[in-house]
Design a protein around this nucleic acid. Structure first.
Length: 330
DNA sequence: AATCTGCGCAACCGCGTTGGA
DNA sequence: ATCCAACGCGGTTGCGCAGAT
């Protein structure tokens, strides 16, 4: 079991690949496919172990790999997914189909992590760091709210990802069968959940780019990434505050679900509240409250019907309470 | 010009998971 | 149900390069 060497390393070449080795491996895989990686080196005439061949192929030689600088949108995707998934690089990579997990991991460790830290955000928890929590303008409530927003957004994204995963699984298993309820729900959610609400940290991230005049706001997000940072403090701003009557029931389950993911959300003990905060516009805000630590609004969805917003959140709650991707470890 | 230092990235290591025997 | 080889993944290492001294 694990830990044992994958091959006899004494007789096999290690270290950087030469162009000739790349050519051999590429030619072999293009003609035969890789099949069993164990057999690839011998068949391709390489003095490498299969593991090394697989790594070279998946991280470098694969023709669909996108190389070069990460765009701002890619950075935002990575940040958002990292807040949700943690260091699950392969899972993150599935949302950036032309990037490898290794590349994303390297980019996170060498760029994004440092820049988030400079912005006053803990790159591990994605919560505002101590400097923000004790900011001179006393905006600790905003900081706390931001962390709650991250927690909520993480849970929502996880549910969305789970739904997509389930849907794909069902498509594979029951290609010709009638569509089950989750698939119908997926269709329903597709328009409601896309694009997802963005974390304030991501808005801040984008502001960095616009303030440095390296990109436009809105129309073109695939712009080069910023190369320096601004203080995060000035970008923490619009956390709306709502008071309302509680709607009970579902969030207990949601809290359990979030806890089951075992990441930065594990300390949540939430109740939720939904209300119309502006009767003229029929806005709806969802509030998440954590025991002893104030409330959070996840924001409204401007200009949409109250009833539709109710359905929107109900759909999310339905997602949260069905088919967890992992067993709760409670 | 030589040396040092930090950064970025490719590659490796080792552990957990999977699936077949 | 158990074992184990192969695979997949995340953490870490080490090399090459560029900029600083």
């Amino acid at each position: 079991m694990g830990g044992s060497p994958c091959c006899d390393t004494t007789s096999l070449k290690r270290g950087p690949w030469t162009p000739e080795e790349d050519r051999k491996l590429l030619a072999y895989i293009q003609e035969h496919g890789h099949g069993s990686w164990r057999c690839v080196p011998e068949n391709a005439g390489l003095q490498r172990c299969g593991k090394s061949c697989r790594l070279r192929w998946t991280n470098y030689l694969r023709p669909d790999i996108k190389r070069g600088k990460f765009s701002l949108r890619e950075e935002q995707t990575i940040i958002q997914l990292h807040a949700l998934l943690g260091n699950r690089w392969s899972a993150i990579a599935t949302h950036l189909p032309n990037r490898t997990d290794n590349e994303i991991k390297n980019y996170w460790n060498t760029h994004l992590k440092k820049r988030l830290a400079k912005m006053g955000i803990d790159p591990v928890t994605h919560k505002p760091s101590h400097a923000v929590l004790t900011s001179p303008n006393g905006d600790s409530k905003n900081a706390a709210n931001l962390s709650h927003m991250a927690q909520w957004e993480s849970a929502r994204l996880e549910a969305e990802a789970r739904l997509v995963k389930d849907s794909k699984l069902r498509q594979t298993q029951h290609a010709s069968a009638s569509a089950p309820a989750p698939a119908q729900l997926l269709n329903k959610m597709a328009t409601r959940l896309t694009p997802p609400r963005r974390l304030d940290v991501l808005n801040a991230w984008e502001n960095v780019g616009s303030k440095l005049k390296i990109g436009s706001s809105g129309s073109n997000r695939d712009i080069p990434s910023p190369t320096s940072t601004l203080s995060f403090l000035e970008n923490v701003s619009t956390i709306s505050r709502v008071e309302s009557s509680e709607i009970t029931g579902i969030l207990g389950t949601l809290g359990t679900e979030i806890d089951a993911f075992g990441t930065q959300q594990c300390d949540i003990n939430m109740t939720w509240t939904m209300e119309s905060t502006d009767e003229n516009a029929n806005f709806v805000h969802l509030l998440l409250s954590r025991s002893g630590d104030g409330i959070l609004t996840n924001g409204g969805r401007d200009g949409e019907e109250l009833e539709d917003n109710k359905n929107y959140w109900n759909d999310i709650m339905n997602l949260m309470t069905c088919q967890p991707s992992r067993s709760p470890n409670l």
